[in-house]
Design a protein around this nucleic acid. Structure first.
Lengths: 188, 188
DNA sequence: GCAAATATGATGCAGAACGTATCGTAAGAT
DNA sequence: ATCTTACGATACGTTCTGCATCATATTTGC
């Protein structure tokens, strides 16, 4: 397959240069010409690896996405808190945040971007549920939307600091809104 | 000030054409050259009105943003549900959704886009709180982030239908997570 | 090791979009 | 009626885009 050392070498190198370029001047400056110059690579090489800029963004997000997750075993709110913090910290990287937001925008009219977002969402939900398994808690899509949505809204739209206190409050609201908390305090 | 009929005329006309252009081919196709051709306007005119593409996006979002809000007076959950539905319906317009997501991405490295997002957020939070005043309920930023964030996450990231059932569940979770619901069912 | 496959570099080229400048004309304001 | 100014027309250099071609270097399979 693609075990050629050359492709992996330039691929990783270019992706890293792309990250630094985004971090420095934003996704608007992520042009094939500029990237080729920065990465000391010719433009045709970039086109061979990523025929479309979207594919480049996808690689940046998918590779930068699976950051280290918290260790499982503790109670559910603790796991969720750690999960949201890792999401916040991940989006603290300007390169990942830039690529991610650009991908969201591209997804409006680009099926490739859409499926990449779908994959990211699935991966993160699956990872969270794996961590929650010992607690016998299973997150449903609406819950994930509320939890991750709150953090991402604060980060990308309200654009205020996503503090630990904010994450604690979001987690608490989620925990107390669970069905078994609504009318009694018992749980099997 | 800018009460010149000519400026308002071309401004509105061009913005409408921009909307149709985005709806048809996405924000990636929103180029000054293409827009000038479509709106039967010369390129220098576009640069006079919006020296930067970001300013054009800002106008599209700010003008398309204040959609009709629900009438106040009913109980808080009903108001919140209607609020979230209006948010969902607003983002059902491809032009607004495209401009909005593009603005989010641009905000990463563009102060103009940042302040526009801030203004939109403030406006919507103020509008919601006005509608909630009769119910003696006041929404705090974390609550708004969870409510709006859930809808926007579903719309732009998970990219699944934002159904009425989804909005109902989000609203219910919010309502039951309020402090006065947590340990008793009394409220002053 | 050697030969075949292929990734990359080097270079070129036409087209599109950009950003800006100048000047004439027509519409609106006073 | 005159002054102001928004707009059209046109032009120019720059940047980025896709794509093509060919030589070179690296890797792989034998």
């Amino acid at each position: 397959m693609t075990t050629d050392p050359r492709v992996e070498r330039t691929r990783l190198h270019v992706l890293q240069q792309a990250r630094e370029l985004i971090a420095a001047d934003g996704t608007g400056a992520l042009t094939y010409t500029a990237l080729a110059k920065r990465a000391q690579v010719t433009r045709p090489t970039l086109y061979r690896h990523w025929p479309t800029p979207t594919e480049l963004l996808v690689d940046l997000v998918l590779q930068g996405g699976p950051t280290l997750y918290p260790y499982p075993g503790t109670d559910a709110p603790t796991v969720v808190r750690a999960f949201l913090r890792s999401l916040r910290d991940g989006m603290g990287d300007p390169a990942l945040a830039g690529a991610f937001s650009a991908l969201i925008s591209a997804a409006e009219h680009d099926p490739t971007a859409r499926s990449a977002l779908h994959e990211v969402t699935q991966n993160r939900q699956a990872a969270l549920n794996t961590l929650l398994a010992p607690s016998s808690v299973h997150i449903q899509p609406p819950e994930l939307a509320q939890l991750s949505g709150a953090v991402l809204f604060q980060r990308f739209i309200a654009r205020t600091d996503v503090t630990d206190a904010f994450i604690d409050e979001v987690t608490d609201r989620w925990w107390h809104a669970r069905p078994e908390h609504r009318h009694d305090d018992e749980h099997p």
